[in-house]
């Protein structure tokens, strides 16, 4: 098992990490960096709970990508949304609209929602559906999640004033 040192920026913090070629990005995030907010679900690309954002702010599945591939890149996990003790607007929206039940899928759902907001600050119904189709919530459903996404810009405006 070959090991290599990669440089990875996680939530703005650049680190050098010794990874093996058998590890995925998810393994590194959870087991080596102890950022266990990102969940391990199906590990086959069907459930989306391992979603993190790449440098472009897009949603990617950390379970399906070898860690070595991320040398020199930058990612944001659920732990990186909070800034200086303040929750991100999308997190506040999830709380206010009750878009959480058991919470297992929530990190993946929120990072997918964040990717939608990054691309479309006031997303249309179609943009929400396209961006959120890749994550599954099996308890609270997707209605409240969509409510949170639709109203994220209101919460952002409120916190900016």
């Amino acid at each position: 098992m070959a090991r290599e040192i990669i440089t990875l920026t996680v939530n703005g913090d650049t680190r050098e990490i010794l990874v093996s070629d058998r590890q995925t990005l998810l393994d590194v995030i959870r087991d080596q960096l102890s950022l266990t907010g990102t969940k391990r679900g199906c590990t086959t690309g069907a459930c989306g709970v391992c979603t993190v954002n790449n440098a472009q702010g897009e949603a990617v599945l950390s379970c399906l990508t070898p860690a070595l591939e991320w040398d020199g890149e930058s990612i944001v996990t659920i732990e990186g949304l909070e800034q200086n003790g303040e929750l991100d607007a999308i997190q506040t929206a999830f709380i206010e609209y009750g878009a959480v039940q058991c919470g297992f899928c929530t990190p993946g759902v929120i990072m997918s929602a964040k990717a939608v907001i990054n691309a479309h600050p006031e997303p249309t119904e179609e943009q929400i559906n396209a961006g959120m189709a890749g994550v599954l919530c099996r308890c609270t459903g997707h209605i409240k999640v969509k409510d949170a996404l639709r109203n994220d810009h209101l919460i952002r405006a409120r916190s900016e004033t």
């Binding site: 790449n54 897009e58 949603a59 599945l61 990717a115 396209a130 189709a133 890749g134």
Partner: peptide, 12 residues
């Protein structure tokens, strides 16, 4: 391509 898998998969 838009009908292919999910946005997450198409991002990769």
């Amino acid at each position: 391509i838009r009908q292919l898998a999910s946005r997450h998969v198409r991002n990769m």
